[in-house]
C-alpha cells in the first residue's frame, strides 16, 4: 500500500495549513456560541467539542509512527503540529471550563478538581502536556537528547487518561466513548508489539536472500 506524499517544496506550507485547518472547528464553534447560534447549553456544547477534538488530535499524533512502520510513509513532519493542536485544544477545553462554564469561581473550580476524580485526572493530563508543548522545538530536542524521547513518552499515559476522562464524564458510556478508548488502546498496544514487529521486518530481509541462494537447484 502506498500513501501519498507531498513534493518537498510544499512541506512547510502544508504544516501551516494543518495548523489553520486544525483550529477551524474551535474558531467556528466559538463564533456560533458567541453569537447565540448554539441551541440549548452553548457553553457545554463548546466545552465538549474542544475535548473531543483534543482526543482526535492526540489520536492523530499517535498514528504517525505506526503509519511509518507499517506503510513506509514518513509523515513525522506533521507530528509536532498535531501534538501542539492536541495541546491547544486541551488548553482551550480547560479555559472554556474555568471561564465560560465556572465563570472564574475559583472556590468551585478547586473543589471540582480535588473532589471529582474525572476532573482530577483530566487536570493531571493537561499539566503533563505542558512540558511536552514547551519542549516541542528543535533547541529542546538537541539540548535534552535521549531525555527528550523519554519525556515525550508521557504522551501514552496522557492519551490513556484522556480517554478515561471522556468515559467517566458521561452518564452512560456509549459507542463514541468506546471508539475513542478503543483506538487509543490499539495505538498504545502497538507500541508494545512494535519492537518484535520491527525486528521481524528488519531481520527477515537478508535471511530471505540467504535462503534463496541456498535453495538447491532442481534442474
Amino acid at each position: 500500500m502506498q500513501l501519498p506524499t507531498l513534493p518537498k517544496r510544499y512541506h512547510a506550507a502544508s504544516i501551516w495549513a494543518l495548523y489553520a485547518l486544525g483550529l477551524l472547528p474551535a474558531a467556528w464553534t466559538f463564533y456560533l456560541g458567541a453569537t447565540g447560534q448554539l441551541v440549548g447549553n452553548p457553553v457545554k456544547i463548546f466545552e465538549h467539542l474542544l475535548g473531543e477534538w483534543a482526543l482526535r488530535f492526540l489520536i492523530l499524533t499517535l498514528t504517525i509512527s505506526p503509519i511509518r512502520d507499517l506503510f513506509g510513509v514518513n509523515w513525522v513532519r506533521y507530528r509536532r503540529a498535531l501534538g501542539l493542536l492536541a495541546f491547544w485544544y486541551v488548553a482551550m477545553h480547560f479555559l472554556a471550563y474555568i471561564v465560560l462554564d465556572k465563570r472564574l469561581a475559583f472556590d468551585v473550580i478547586v473543589e471540582d478538581i480535588f473532589k471529582r476524580w474525572f476532573i482530577t485526572i483530566g487536570m493531571a493530563a493537561f499539566v503533563l502536556l505542558i512540558p511536552l508543548a514547551l519542549t516541542s522545538n528543535r533547541w529542546s530536542i538537541r539540548k535534552l537528547g535521549a531525555g527528550w524521547v523519554r519525556l515525550h513518552r508521557l504522551i501514552y499515559p496522557i492519551a490513556a487518561v484522556g480517554a478515561l476522562h471522556y468515559c467517566l464524564s458521561v452518564k452512560v458510556i456509549g459507542p463514541e466513548q468506546l471508539i475513542y478508548a478503543g483506538i487509543i488502546a490499539v495505538l498504545i498496544g502497538w507500541r508494545l508489539v512494535r519492537p518484535r514487529f520491527m525486528a521481524m521486518k528488519r531481520g527477515r530481509r537478508p535471511q530471505y536472500g540467504k535462503l534463496a541462494a541456498e535453495i538447491p537447484r532442481t534442474d
Binding site: 456560541g33 471540582d112 476532573i119
Partner: peptide, 22 residues
Amino acid sequence: HPRWSQATENRVGGGGFFGSND
C-alpha cells in the same frame, strides 16, 4: 451529584456564551 455540583444551574435558551444565564 458525585461528578458535578448541584448548587447552580444553567437556564437554557437565550444569547449564547455571554447571555448565558446561570
